[in-house]
Design a protein around this nucleic acid. Structure first.
Lengths: 346, 346
DNA sequence: TTGTAGGCGTTATCAT
DNA sequence: ATGATAACGCCTACAA
């Protein structure tokens, strides 16, 4: 019982294979009645086009790839993956995954080999891969269409999904300041990620807006992982004038902050407020649950896939880009400082 | 600059395309010298076989699929995914993903459509999908080779990777009993997963071995998620004689247990010992870090992919199966009960 | 609006 | 040990 082919459908519908092809690909110039008859035959036979044959003759693979830095904490990637898979399913494309571990000396080669071997129609690059100029150039050179999720800046000739990291971090910093916090600590994200700088910028902007002097002593490096959040908190809390609230550039680091606070016998939020970023599952699973920022990650992935596929034919000179706004989620890890004026409701 | 084909290689090496094909596919009956010459041409041209053409001609797709229940907490799936991707990369296959949300009325149809449309050579099913008899039968019917990760019991005609859940849970229960705990609570896993029953069995067996009577009042349902762990802990701790340690059938639930304990002002491990299962990142990120069990998940995924690919040709009547052993990881969420006799070193 | 012919790059069959 | 040639199932061009 081998699968039926376009010939079987054509025979059953009493038309040529070309007409069947037209119907399958939704081309114009098919009489309504004919289309109907063909569709019926397709349904009856359960015909599914053979993608190998289709790919061979059309020169397209109907496959797009996604390369990403393989993180220890996968929640963020999971949301991207789900969004991309949904969009692929809806458009009839397949998604191939290529996790990479950074730093990787042969990064460009590995990804190019992936792209060439799979004959990708397009490739999604998540941060920080999308900021590798050499990689972008190689891909461009091989005519592989590229889409970027959270690049430092919109990549020319590519589809880009950006999130308003600066605005979101401004909003959450503004929020804690209005709660009465004057010494706001900040743990930066991984320096290779564009989001890190933007989030820091939002933090600074909020301080400035409230007339609070920026103190580098309250800002410390981090790498988006639990351990660096914990260490960063340690450094900040060891200051002679420690912060009363710490904003971490993502949830994993915020969880590390809470871990460190607990080790020091500090109560959250009474002794120390904590803020995260991303609203990953861990944000609701630490005690107390984290105030954080939610990005529309699935929507961003969906956007890049659809745009990418839509742009496959045409050459793409300008950047296609869209910025997505984030949402502050207030939970129990932040609370008004005693006696502070506050007009924000939770 | 289109990619080179088998003809280019043949011309350059001064042989026929068939000989090139033989070399590419590692077939026998090629003179060493010829093989060498062809290989050189391949390398020089950077020739990569076109998988669409190969698929069309051979009738195989060189694609395997993996269907899984899309979990909120993805760590476990991430390990499976990485293992499967590695094995696919090594064997030249592609992996296509199909997340499903359970319960799903049209489950069988959806997965069959996935398998047929992608013309999968094989399909990996993770628990609890691999326990769906109707699905297995349909797949078998369509001659799709199946591999199962953690089925309730090895599926006939399929490749199976099982983990020694019973033995592992026995070991960890035995461990806490030896620490001096007599009232050992247990939060079961999702009833649809075979692992749940096996873990419970290991728990019971350890109790029996130590002459401790099984009390259903100390065992409560759970669903593998944080919330059910928290609720389960609530029920157990509300008993007139609450447990002094709670074993949860996975880490997420154990994190929920710790959350609940904290809300009640109980100290872990002094007032309550907690044990998880899976050694996911959260196990090291809660306070205190969790005693848990590590399964060789990546190795299991690797195993099924390689076996699956190896078995693609031959019909498979008996089950291929391998059971993987687990490892108890002792951390700070369990500690000897004061005054209890203990001979176990940490 | 519909159909015919040719080719996409492999693998498989059968010779030699 | 090597090669010629016919599929594989579809799409693209070009006709009608």
């Amino acid at each position: 019982m081998s699968a039926s082919t376009i010939f079987d459908v054509a025979e059953r519908a009493g038309v040529s294979i070309k007409t069947v092809s037209r119907v399958v690909n939704n081309e114009a110039n098919v009489a309504a009645k004919t289309r109907e008859r063909v569709q019926l035959a397709i349904d009856q036979l359960g015909y599914q086009p053979n993608s190998a044959a289709r790919g061979l003759s059309s020169g397209r693979s109907y496959v797009i790839g996604m390369a990403y830095e393989n993180p220890n904490e996968f929640s963020y990637m999971k949301d991207i993956l789900n969004g991309a898979l949904r969009a692929c399913e809806a458009t009839g494309y397949s998604l191939l995954l290529k996790p990479v571990v950074l730093p990787e000396a042969a990064l460009v080669d590995r990804i190019m080999e992936f792209a060439v071997q799979a004959r990708l129609d397009g490739l999604i690059l998540t941060a920080p891969l999308c900021d590798d100029q050499e990689l972008i150039a190689s891909l461009h050179n091989r005519a592989v269409k590229v889409a970027c999720i959270s690049p430092k800046a919109a990549v020319a000739g590519a589809v880009n999904a950006l999130s308003d990291d600066e605005g979101a971090c401004f909003a959450v910093t503004d929020y804690v300041i209005r709660q009465g916090h004057a010494r706001v600590g900040f743990i930066k994200g991984h320096p290779d990620h564009g989001a890190s700088l933007k989030r820091l910028r939002g933090y600074k902007k909020a301080l400035a807006q409230h007339g609070i002097r920026y103190q580098s002593a309250l800002v410390t490096p981090g790498y988006f992982d639990f351990a660096s959040g914990r260490k960063g908190a340690g450094r900040l809390l060891d200051r002679s004038e420690p912060p009363t609230v710490i904003i971490a550039a993502n949830d994993n680091m915020a969880a590390g902050v809470m871990f460190e606070a607990r080790e020091r016998g500090m109560a959250v939020p009474q002794d120390l407020g904590v803020v995260g970023f991303d609203d990953t599952p861990i944000a609701s699973q630490v005690w107390p649950p984290l105030t954080t920022v939610r990005q529309p990650i699935g929507a961003m992935a969906d956007f890049v896939v659809r745009q990418l596929i839509q742009k496959l034919g045409e050459p793409l000179h300008n950047a296609i880009d869209q910025t997505f706004t984030c949402q502050v989620i207030v939970r129990d890890s932040t609370e008004p400082v005693a006696g502070a004026p506050s007009s924000i409701t939770r």
